[in-house]
Design a protein around this nucleic acid. Structure first.
Lengths: 141, 141
DNA sequence: TTCGTTTGTGTAATATTATTACGTAACATA
DNA sequence: TATGTTACGTAATAATATTACACAAACGAA
């Protein structure tokens, strides 16, 4: 599903397009700052748009960094679970999907009588390119 | 490992004991409020103690709710991964461990050259007892 | 079409969570 | 004792998120 096909309001569209054009997750307040020129003035306008976009599944919230990111996979709604590997050096978030994990988690839930509504899987660390950059930097000392 | 054996400072001990006695995760500021009578006055005192306790592995941070909880398993350091099922009704967090998920995640990481430092797995939903309570409430209407 | 409902908007105020900056104290150990 | 490390206390501030209120647009059903 291309996000262009979604019927969104002006604010929702502004927020989604900004997130799509960003190469890293953004905080609600940095979204607000970027969109002041478009007429957004208050945090709530951003949070409301984000709520809607998250509900539609085209934006994900990164719980561990209070940030938001556009869904990387146009068809990710068809996938059970979405996780993120977040690089603490460059700030980028790599999205991944894994049905095995989804099954384990839903298995645990049903075995424990827990009715799961949403799931968050986040790995923090250093991405491949930042590791390389660090290596060559230390090698060049 | 019983937490009593840990060599902790006064503030760290206060925070850990409070979390151990709580049946649900607590926010940093509710910890602070509870410990004002013990002499704690500022958020930083709580955050510093929490940082230390998390580093020791005896406290976990619930990323999705900005809250903190004592580790449920005295020996949880030996387990690869810890996850939580958080009930949105009663606020309690059920801790679980799963080495299969840990393996999948570390497998993904090594396949993608990502150096993982920490992992967070959180499920939000409704726990078994709150579901029962809701059922009997609606049945009694 | 008109009513009523839902959904979205805009603004202001406030609540909640977390950090920075600074100086001091306790303590191990070389 | 001199030194480094860890922890403490306080104040100020930054960053994130929500509540409350009033109004407007969209839309379906009578």
């Amino acid at each position: 599903m291309a996000t262009a096909e979604l019927k969104l309001t002006k604010n929702q569209r502004l927020v989604l397009d900004l997130l799509c054009s960003s190469d890293a997750p953004m905080s609600a307040y940095s979204i607000l700052d970027q969109l002041r020129s478009e007429g957004l003035r208050a945090p709530l306008q951003v949070y409301r748009a984000l709520d809607k976009l998250i509900g539609l599944g085209v934006v994900h919230r990164l719980e561990s960094m209070n940030a938001f990111v556009a869904c990387a996979h146009p068809a990710c709604h068809s996938v059970e679970m979405v996780g993120f590997a977040i690089c603490e050096t460059c700030g980028k978030a790599l999205e991944f999907a894994d049905n095995d994990i989804a099954e384990i988690l839903s298995g645990w839930a049903s075995a424990n009588g827990f009715a799961a509504k949403s799931t968050s899987v986040e790995i923090k660390g250093t991405c491949a390119s930042c590791q390389k950059a660090a290596e060559s930097a230390s090698g060049a000392e």
